Simulated assay, not measured.
Amino acid sequence: MKLISISSGKVLPLFGNHHPNYKSVVSAIHKKSISNLQNPIAIEINTLGVKGDEQADLSVHGGIEKAIYVYPSEHYEFWNALLTRETKKPTSLEYGAIGENFTIEGLLETDVFVGDKLLIGELEFLVVKLREPCFKFNAALGYKGASKAMLQSGFSGWYLRVLKTGVLTAGAKITLVPGPRNTSIAQQNKNLLNSRNQKDLWE
């Protein structure tokens, strides 16, 4: 299990006809890899996440409880295949394209529970909750069904609180320290799928 990319983004206009009430909104969902296995630069991680990273809407992203968004690299194959099929354009997303700060390998939503700790390098993080997709995710990927696909696939990723700050570099080893193990991220996703209006995800 290891960290293979650290990504950061700035708040920018996000265009698209992916919501009936918004023709353009601002978002920092477009993240770019700033430390990866090919270019392992040391990046400062503070209590609010990756230094220099921004969030447009702090009610749903960012802050202490959602400081870092983690996404398994294993899911990129799914998105590339889906978008290639649905948009009729060959797609090869770069790490950070899902909006994540940390792209990892070796841990999936079924493996991770709310309250688990992740030790990454010398730093320490707490698993808080899954990521809930919205219309901005649809706009970012250029596909109106992206949010629905994330929810139905269970490929949501999850948020971390930073317990121990410091410096991280891509390639750092990840160790999972189990918490109470009551609710996995996969189970959270299933609960959300059962309760959420699917129609909303298309808008």
Rank of each mutant, 00 (worst) to 15 (best):
D53Q: 06
L37D: 05
Q38S: 15
W158T: 10
E105W: 00
G52M: 04
K136I: 07
N138P: 05
E74K: 07
G62F: 03
F135D: 03
I43Q: 11
K129T: 15
V114N: 01
F137S: 00
V70E: 12
F102N: 11
T84P: 07
E109F: 01
T110W: 02
F135E: 03
A140T: 14
V127S: 09
A139I: 04
G52V: 05
G115Q: 08
F102S: 09
I68C: 10
E94A: 11
I64P: 08
E109K: 06
L108R: 14
I41F: 00
K148D: 08
W158E: 03
K66C: 05
T103L: 02
W79G: 12
G121V: 03
W158M: 09
V60H: 09
E86R: 15
W158N: 07
E65M: 08
S147I: 03
L83H: 09
E74W: 00
F137V: 13
K89I: 12
I41K: 14
N101W: 01
S147P: 10
L82T: 12
L37Q: 08
I120W: 04
G106N: 07
A140G: 14
L130H: 11
K88Y: 01
S92D: 13
E100G: 10
L130Y: 05
Y143S: 02
I120L: 11
K66E: 08
L126P: 08
G62M: 02
G145S: 08
T110V: 09
F125V: 08
I104R: 09
G121D: 11
K136R: 11
P133D: 06
L93D: 04
D57S: 01
L151K: 03
D116F: 02
D53W: 01
K144L: 07
T87P: 11
S92L: 13
S147Y: 03
F113S: 11
L83S: 12
A81R: 15
T47S: 13
P133C: 05
K117H: 14
H75L: 06
D116I: 05
Y143E: 07
I64T: 14
Y95K: 14
E77I: 06
T87S: 13
E44S: 14
L118K: 05
A146N: 09
N138V: 08
N46C: 07
V112P: 10
C134R: 12
Q152E: 15
E44L: 10
E44G: 02
A140F: 00
V127N: 09
F137M: 12
I104G: 07
W79N: 12
D111G: 03
Y76V: 04
S153Y: 02
T103V: 01
R85P: 01
L58P: 00
L83C: 10
H61Q: 09
I120G: 06
H75N: 14
P90F: 00
K51M: 06
V60I: 13
Q152C: 11
Q152M: 12
F113T: 05
G62A: 06
F78C: 03
L141Q: 13
I68V: 15
N101A: 05
G106P: 10
T103R: 06
S147D: 09
I41Y: 01
A97R: 10
K66Y: 03
T84R: 11
A140S: 15
L37M: 13
A149D: 03
I64K: 15
L118P: 05
W79L: 05
C134L: 06
E132N: 12
A67H: 10
S156W: 00
W158H: 04
